[in-house]
């Protein structure tokens, strides 16, 4: 039982990552691909935050009477990673808007056919 409690978080996070990854590589619609990419990345963030947790600890902000803090380093890394994620999302979505204007569609197989036709 303790084995399952120790690893439950990791396994669910792996499941979430793979769900996001599946959406990225299987979706034909570009907006959905970006949503998948975000789900994938957010789940990776959860992996990092999970490893930073200390049972019985609190948020890493100094407070009186607290001696056990969770690890601040993964939090810092993920703050950076979230920002990187939104930056990529913004550029990806702008590309989608331009693709829609240039091809009239955001379904991957449709504009691929057009590209091949040229």
């Amino acid at each position: 039982m303790s084995f399952i409690i120790d690893y439950y978080n990791y396994w669910i996070v792996v499941f979430l990552m793979m769900t996001g990854f599946y959406i990225v590589i299987s979706a034909n619609n570009l907006v959905k691909k970006i949503v998948g990419l975000n789900i994938f990345q957010t789940s990776v963030f959860m992996l990092y935050i999970t490893m930073g947790k200390v049972s019985g600890g609190t948020a890493p902000i100094v407070a009186e009477g607290v001696t056990l803090y969770s690890n601040p380093l993964p939090h810092v890394l993920i703050l950076t990673a979230i920002v990187v994620g939104v930056a990529t999302t913004a550029v990806g979505l702008s590309l989608i808007v331009r693709i829609k204007r240039a091809y009239g569609t955001v379904e991957e197989n449709e504009f691929q056919n057009e590209d091949d036709a040229i």
Partner: peptide
């Protein structure tokens, strides 16, 4: 050329993965 857009998007998805 409009094809640069789809190329860039594919690059973005692969690169981010």
């Amino acid at each position: 050329d409009r094809r640069c857009l789809t190329a860039a998007f594919r690059y973005l998805v692969m690169g981010t993965i």
